[in-house]
Write a protein that binds this DNA or RNA. Structure first.
Length: 431
RNA sequence: GGAACGGUGGCAGAGCGGCCGAAUGCACCUGUCUUGAAAACAGGAGACCUGCAAGGGUCCGCAGGUUCAAAUCCUGCUCGUUCCGCCA
């Protein structure tokens, strides 16, 4: 959520910042929020004045009663009348409050001043790279991973579909081992600074609202109606809410955490896209890194987290590049955001394998994560940042295609060897 | 799933419908004392909204209800503990 007070005191700044996202209807929502806020403060003032009177009268009644004064009855009647008026105003206040909250929850975050302007993903500037990109690929590398996986007997999507329906994948044998190896690798590489967490993967609506998926993007998530729980689309969701509703001490920040989790996505808007192979599916594995921080710590943390994600991809020896997300392509909650893309010669495509973002106080305000500076009075809203350390399926696919040898085998990147039980190459099953 | 009990400030823990934003202890902060600290003593100190401020309002798990007045009474929910049942 954006800060209502900023909207109230400096609407021009908010308008200008949101205008950069290039969605005209946003500005209408802003005006709506501004007028609701003004109205809310008016009636709250009225309501509080009434409450003050009622409170005062009630005290009087108490005193009169004690003194045995019959005037108490009169005062009670007066108070009752005021109380009725207060009830009406209170109901209205509540209504306006809810309406305002609903509008605010749907307004996206303000882009960082340094975030590049742009209308769509075509305008995302290149930050670094391409790295490790050979001048040309051999023919044996220009085979899509779904063909490689099938030939090696390590990808069995047909049976995944039999079990669970379209857009589910299944890895078998060394394919499954490779998936797990990637997770281990990502976790081990960040264990120096990040606490490993194994969070719940079913969460409440409140939790899913904190990170920004609700109320606007309910269609993108799996919902278990009977128990009123949602399947997480990323470990960002439970990790962000880990400190929800708490006041942290400044000394606890930055709190750095990481988690492996399955991720569940309905992919409602993309039916039919990327249906082959492992580029898009309803369930996949990911290792996420996340930090809760002070505003001052955040810029450096953002850079650090991009570096960490880059190091993982680079360590695998895959061709990659880093781009920055422009204002028109930014996600709802993002303040500033970088993507790492890996080139897959079989698909002939740059695949987004990691996204590192700074949310400023947008998520923390929704989640009510605050911190206290030293012995200073009062609290401040914290900042949150997170990034995929490693999203398994697309990296898995890129390894298949980039590392395919002339003999049809796939070479395991060196950094994964410790997790592969001695396997250096995945070779076709000889039958 | 069934039953019993419970949810009060950073923690522990009192609280007759009005004198309760809430005793007390610990922890914390500031002073006095001390070379410094500890101890002792004195004082201070919650969060949120609104307001330039003074002030006002809200918050005792959550939501309703009763009442002139609710931490306190009633209802529903939720979470926790324990016991039973079930179970990897």
């Amino acid at each position: 959520m954006i800060d209502v007070r900023l909207l109230r005191n400096d609407p021009a700044v908010v308008r200008a910042a949101l205008a950069r996202r290039g969605k005209p209807d946003l500005l209408e929502q802003l005006e709506h929020a501004i007028s609701l806020d003004a109205r809310l403060r008016d009636i709250m003032l009225e309501r509080d004045a009434l409450r003050q009177q009622v409170n005062g009268l009630s005290k009087e009644v108490g005193a009169l009663r004690k003194a045995g004064d019959t005037a108490a009855e009169e005062v009670m009647a007066k108070s009752r009348a005021l109380g009725d008026a207060e009830t009406g105003l209170a109901a209205e206040t509540e209504q306006v409050e809810l309406a305002l909250r609903d509008v605010l929850l749907r307004i996206p975050n303000l882009p960082h001043p340094d975030a590049p302007n742009g209308a769509s993903d075509h305008d995302n500037p290149l930050v670094s790279g391409p790295h490790h990109l050979p001048t040309q690929f051999a023919d044996h590398q220009k085979v899509p991973h779904w063909e490689i996986g099938a030939a090696l007997g390590i990808l069995d999507n047909e049976r995944a579909v039999k079990i669970s329906g379209a857009m589910f994948t299944m890895q078998r044998g060394l394919g499954a081992t490779l998936s797990r190896a990637l997770c281990q690798y990502a976790l081990d590489s960040n264990a120096d600074e990040f606490e490993e967490v194994r969070p719940p993967t079913l969460v409440t609506s409140a939790t899913l609202t904190a990170t920004g998926q609700l109320p606007k993007f309910a269609d993108d998530a799996f919902f278990i109606e009977r128990d009123d729980l949602w399947c997480i689309p990323t470990a960002e969701v439970p990790l962000t809410s880990l400190y929800a509703g708490e006041v942290l001490n400044e000394a606890q920040l930055p709190a750095k955490m990481m988690a492996y989790s399955p991720c569940y996505r309905r992919e409602a808007g993309s039916a039919g896209r990327d249906t082959r192979g492992m580029l898009r599916s309803h369930e996949f594995d990911k290792v996420e890194i996340l930090a809760v921080a002070t505003p001052e710590q955040s810029p450096d943390l953002l850079q650090e987290m991009v570096k960490r994600a880059e190091k993982l991809i680079s360590g695998l020896g895959l061709p990659y590049r880093i781009i920055e997300i422009c204002t028109g392509d930014m996600g709802q909650s993002h303040h500033r955001s970088f993507d790492i893309e890996v080139y897959a010669p079989g698909c002939d495509a740059w695949l987004e394998v990691s996204s590192v973002s700074w949310f400023a106080d947008y998520q923390a305000r929704r989640a009510d994560i605050r911190f206290k500076r030293g012995t200073q009075k009062g609290t401040e809203i914290a900042h949150t940042l997170n990034g995929s350390a490693l999203a398994v399926p697309r990296v898995w696919a890129a390894i298949m295609e980039n590392n395919r040898q002339a003999d049809g085998s796939v070479r395991i990147p060196d950094v994964l060897l410790p997790y592969m039980r001695g396997t250096t190459h995945i070779v076709p099953k000889s039958e």
